[in-house]
Write a protein that binds this DNA or RNA. Sequence first.
DNA 1: AACATATGCAACAAAATGGTTGCATATGTT
DNA 2: AACATATGCAACCATTTTGTTGCATATGTT
Lengths: 115, 115
Amino acid sequence: MTNLSGAFRKSTHHHANIFAALGDPTRLRLIRKLIDGKTYSISALSSGSEITRQAVTKHLTVLESAKLVSKVKDGRESLYALNPKPLKSLQEYLEIISSQWDQTLENLKSFVEKK
Amino acid sequence: MTNLSGAFRKSTHHHANIFAALGDPTRLRLIRKLIDGKTYSISALSSGSEITRQAVTKHLTVLESAKLVSKVKDGRESLYALNPKPLKSLQEYLEIISSQWDQTLENLKSFVEKK
DNA sequence: AACATATGCAACAAAATGGTTGCATATGTT
DNA sequence: AACATATGCAACCATTTTGTTGCATATGTT
């Protein structure tokens, strides 16, 4: 990566990917279930769901490729656990954007006061 | 809406929708351009882009239906402006999730200390 | 061994997404 | 009026997404 705009594009793609992974109600529900730090098997995560176990599996692989969850085999079960790093990363990203917006408002305010 | 789980589902869908709108590199770039509080026409937002003006228009309608931007006609131009509310909303949402995770870590810590 | 449970894998289908091209329409400029 | 610019709209296409069903395999239980 030789220039800054390239680095920005890379980071934009990366964050967009995490946003996309969270951009589905089922996956957001999975994240909220895993937020207690416990591990859950696929059947545990599927029970009570409207959709099939296989569909849930697919959603989990989406979350896994965004590194939002990690999977470990335990006997006949596949246990999933949350990985908070991408969430923290998104949080920081939104904080930067928000602070830029707040700066925008601040600039507008001082502009008005000058008049 | 008679029960809490219904309200939660609604809010989950709502947030998932905003996440999804941000889950594309092109749209994320548009947001970052609009963060300065200025309004931009479609051609202004398209210039320098790899993709066509019509594609950018489609992305803008996605952002608009998630209420991340708003559109106003001005002469022959369509001017788009950022609406920060959904961003703030997402930020709060991530903060809640993060704090739940931090609480999880806290609980784990006190559990270990008891032993 | 027999049975039940948990998961993996593949094929399939419908719908959504992301992009294009072509053309019409509206508005500003000379 | 003639021309250039900005946008809207529709048709079309390829790919991805989201879900299904069916079956195989692996592991735990009795």
